[in-house]
Amino acid sequence: MILKKPTVATLFAGGGGDSLGFTSAGFDLVFANDNNPDACETLRSRFENGSGKKIVHKGNVEKIKNFGNANVITGGFPCQGFSLAGPREVKDKRNSLYQELKRAISLVNPEFFIGENVKGLVTIGEKSKAKYFHNGKIVKLGKVAEAIIKELSEVGKGYNVSYQLHSAKDFGIPQDRERIIIVGVRKDINFEFKFPKPTHGKGLKPYVTMEEFGIKDIPLKDDEVFREAKGKRKDFFSSRYMSRNRIRKWNETSFTIPAEASQVPAHPSSKKMWNVDVTGENRPKDSEWAEFRKKHEKDISKSLVRLSWRQCAAIQGFPKDHPFSGDVVSIYKQIGNAVPPLLMQKVAECIMPYYKGKKSSY
């Protein structure tokens, strides 16, 4: 029986996905940091809520000297440089921020730490065709990822580190979203951490669709939708956006919700993207899309519209009353950068048994 709630501190807290996950699992949030003012206001509204508690610390994590005391530290360190969809430079300055997670761990000495990142972390810096994944599992780490794991395991008194690739849809979230979860267990504690077992997929419950998750019931409000006015268009869609299918039906899971507002998946009510055939032999080469889009400006479907930020938040699993702050672009960013709260809750629930006197997650 827990006499006192175990505590959690969160770095790169963003809109609060991991914080919500841990608090939903029974942890007490005692520290959260982000350098985005809007994200910090979101966090304050949700977790301080006029209580007088100083939980949220705005600013550059590199300048923070005291992270307080916590049983668990989480840190979904910024992943732009690791992303499969963006520049994947090993020396990208943003990739060094995991060093700040290491520093926080060394100062706080928590029993557990959690790191979360995009799938691309596994192969950052690798040019070979070697297989790193098989059947949704990591079979090999690239040299950079291996070095990061090794460094994290050597922080402070040392940690037993495990990692696993997780797909959000395997846990009842209506979204194709693969992320690597890294968990460290301090070596001087007697506890065997095990990752949560999938609840949905082959041989389990069917994947949850957007309709089943209630996304279809959320009204598409004009002031909650990103529209980019450019040229003669009130809603501009770039060649990058138009070069791939963005439409999923209500009875399917959503594409990954990105942090970039302009690249958000299309609303399922969008009948099609093009009024011309862009499949098979008619599909432009990657280098031809910009010119093709310019030439066929009038052939972009009039029904095409992006999901609203509120719908994206629901797809991620944020509760309806989560108080996002900022303009539409900022809110989309907070949502897209977040860990789905339910996924992090599942991980937190595999740590909670330690604080109930158990020696294993299950």
Rank of each mutant, 00 (worst) to 15 (best):
I2S: 08
L342D: 08
E48L: 10
L84W: 10
A25C: 04
A32G: 00
I181Y: 11
L20C: 14
K63E: 15
E291C: 04
N66R: 13
S238C: 06
Q263T: 14
R248K: 15
K234D: 11
Y132L: 01
K358D: 11
Q175K: 04
P353K: 11
I182C: 02
K302Q: 13
K53Y: 11
E297M: 12
N49S: 14
A130E: 15
I300G: 07
G317C: 12
L107K: 15
V30N: 03
T253Q: 07
G81T: 02
I351A: 03
N251M: 09
F171M: 03
E100D: 13
Q80G: 03
D222C: 06
H322T: 04
K157V: 03
L152F: 15
D170C: 06
E151K: 14
I182R: 04
K91P: 05
T123Y: 10
E62D: 13
K91L: 12
V8G: 00
L152M: 15
R179E: 03
H134F: 14
L20D: 09
V122L: 01
D18W: 12
L11T: 05
V185W: 00
P196M: 02
K127G: 15
Q80K: 14
F191Q: 01
F213M: 09
V225Q: 09
F226E: 12
E48P: 02
E212L: 05
E192C: 03
N60D: 15
A168C: 07
K202T: 12
K54T: 10
N275D: 12
G214A: 12
A290Y: 07
L20I: 12
F255V: 02
K356M: 13
N135L: 12
Q316A: 03
I257H: 10
T10V: 13
V329E: 11
C350R: 15
Q99G: 00
K150I: 04
D34G: 06
P323N: 10
Y354F: 15
A13D: 13
K93Q: 10
Q345I: 03
S96L: 13
K359Q: 11
D28G: 02
E151G: 09
V264D: 01
G357S: 01
L204E: 08
K216G: 00
Q334T: 06
G81S: 05
S83C: 10
V61G: 04
S96Q: 13
P6G: 00
I105E: 08
K187I: 00
V264L: 10
G120V: 05
E349P: 02
K129F: 13
E154S: 11
D170S: 11
R179Y: 09
K230E: 06
R94P: 06
G156A: 05
A313Y: 13
D277V: 07
D235I: 04
E297R: 13
N117A: 00
I257W: 13
P340R: 12
